[in-house]
Design a protein around this nucleic acid. Structure first.
Length: 372
DNA sequence: CAGCCGTGGCG
DNA sequence: TCGCCAAGGCT
């Protein structure tokens, strides 16, 4: 990701015209000034952007929809108003607040990054590509997005929206991901040196509301006259993508164990890998094989000597690269808890745990009610 | 560098 | 119901 440096022309930074009017960036900025979306992390025109909020929103928005991120962003900002606050937080509190958002490595890197910014950069985010890329969780896209949106520097932030818009605008029919370099070159050629932050956000809005993956609303598009795919009638077919491999199915048996107080047994997952560092219901290994029998599963049970009762039905959950089918069994432990690595949690307190959605589903099924 | 890494919504 | 996709990064 290269920061473009273009010749300056002395036009006021808060205006798209006069020299940009008619140009593609100018048309997009004029459209943005009329149709920009109001989002929790978006600042008003002329308002100084807070790099912390820009960074936090960009991390949360990685592969995650605007609607999903909204409440999480507000909660994080409420609990940790500055990067120094977040750096001082316990990682487990961050994981608990992140629970349900997915891609949990983002939460661990988020905390690492906050610590690094607080300790090594005096609580201020670097405003250079090199400085941003050196931070955990910040890659080419996020570095460019922060440079553009937080610091109003010309940078090419390539995400799914921009790839789609560029593929259509230029009728690039070669499939992703091979076409990424071509699409990036097209995008970089358009980034203006005035209002690059607004331009970048405008491109996101365009991709989200006009140049949508399906049923693009070309009639409303400020770039319609210039769009090569529209002229060819192939806008909705782009961008082309190489076929994805089918997802295998993994199965397991989950042990929903309660003690005499009604507390539920959980475990913490290993720090790395799938659902890293999050809490889980004890299960048999997740394997691409027929559902394990109750007898064969006994060695994996969290406690010995429990009279396990299988529940009817199957809990299904889709991960990025496999389907997961879980058979739930329930059991009652004598007395109050026990078991080496087990953590006993009252049902009312489950909502405060770092529970991934798949584990909340299993508990909802096994306990026969919703989580608070 | 291709595989790994969550979840929810929508047509 | 089902496949696709979302403001990607890490290894």
């Amino acid at each position: 990701m290269a920061v473009r440096s273009l010749p300056k022309t002395g036009i006021k930074a808060d205006q798209a015209s006069p020299d940009q009017s008619g140009s593609l960036p100018g048309l997009l900025l004029e459209w943005y000034d009329r149709h920009r979306r109001i989002l929790p992390w978006r600042f008003a025109p002329g308002e100084v952007a807070d790099p912390y909020r820009v960074w936090l929103s960009e991390i949360m928005l990685q592969q995650t929809t605007v609607a999903t991120v909204g409440p999480y962003f507000k909660n994080f900002l409420d609990r940790w108003p500055t990067v120094n606050d977040l750096a001082a937080a316990d990682l487990d509190d961050v994981l608990r607040a992140w629970a349900g958002l997915g891609y949990y490595a983002r939460a661990r890197n988020l905390h690492k990054c906050a610590v690094a910014v607080a300790a090594q950069h005096g609580g201020r985010f670097p405003d250079t590509e090199e400085g941003l890329l050196s931070l955990p969780g910040i890659g080419a896209y996020t570095a460019a997005a922060i440079l553009a949106i937080a610091f109003d520097k010309p940078a090419t932030a390539m995400d799914g929206n921009v790839e789609r818009v560029m593929a259509r605008l230029n009728a690039v029919t070669d499939p992703l991901p091979g076409s990424k370099p071509v699409l990036r070159a097209h995008a970089a050629a358009l980034v203006p040196d005035r209002r690059p932050g607004d331009y970048t956000q405008a491109l996101f809005d365009l991709g989200a509301t006009i140049c949508a993956p399906r049923k693009p609303r070309c009639i409303l598009c400020p770039w319609a006259d210039a769009c090569a795919a529209r002229k060819l009638g192939i806008a909705e077919d782009l961008p082309a993508k190489t076929a994805k491999a089918a997802k295998p199915t993994r199965r397991a048996l989950a042990f929903v164990l309660t003690d005499a107080r009604g507390h539920v047994a959980l475990r913490r997952r290993p720090e790395k890998g799938l659902l890293g560092g999050m809490m889980e219901v004890p299960t048999t290994p997740w394997e691409a094989a027929p559902a394990p029998t109750l007898v064969g599963s006994r060695p994996h049970a969290p406690l010995a000597g429990i009279d396990w009762k299988p529940l009817p039905g199957i809990v299904r959950h889709t991960f990025t690269h496999f389907e997961f089918e879980i058979t739930v069994v329930t059991g009652r432990a004598a007395g109050a808890g026990g078991g080496a690595d087990l953590i006993w949690v009252a049902p009312d307190a489950l909502g405060d745990e770092a529970l991934p959605t798949v584990m909340a589903k299993i508990l909802r099924h096994g306990l026969g009610k919703g989580l608070t």
